[in-house]
Simulated assay, not measured.
Amino acid sequence: MEIKVCGPGCASCEKTQKIVEAAIAATGVDATLIKVTDFQEIAKMGIFSTPAVVIDGDVKSVGNIPKQSQVEDWLR
């Protein structure tokens, strides 16, 4: 599983990354976490607001910080 956290590195993006890391640990899924900070690469995914979470190419969250329980549901 490939998970991307997209954003420039702002506080919301950092918090989102920590939530995703905690969800990966809680569910025990085999996942690679990638931080995407390049706005052109983010825009190519159709994302124009950050933070965003993309799992295996599927955009799950845009412009808000997801709850850990929500991320865990996405990972299952």
Rank of each mutant, 00 (worst) to 15 (best):
G63E: 07
T32L: 01
C10D: 09
D58E: 07
I3T: 00
I55M: 03
S49Y: 09
L75P: 10
K18P: 02
D30A: 13
M1E: 04
I65M: 04
Q70M: 14
I47M: 07
V71M: 11
T27V: 02
D38W: 15
G28E: 05
E41C: 11
K44F: 09
S49N: 05
K67F: 12
A43N: 10
I24W: 02
E21P: 07
R76D: 00
V5D: 01
A43P: 03
P8Q: 08
D38Q: 14
I65A: 00
I47G: 03
C6T: 07
E14Q: 15
V20Y: 08
N64T: 10
G28T: 06
R76G: 01
I24H: 07
T27A: 01
F48K: 12
K67A: 15
T32Q: 10
T32F: 02
D73E: 14
I47H: 02
G7I: 04
G63S: 11
T16C: 02
F39L: 15
P66M: 15
T50E: 04
F48C: 05
P66S: 15
S61Q: 11
T50S: 02
W74K: 11
L75R: 06
P51Y: 03
V20H: 02
G63T: 10
V62D: 04
P8Y: 10
V53D: 06
V20S: 09
I3D: 07
A23G: 01
K44P: 08
T50L: 03
V62H: 05
I55Q: 06
I47F: 04
S61D: 06
D56W: 08
S69K: 15
T37N: 12
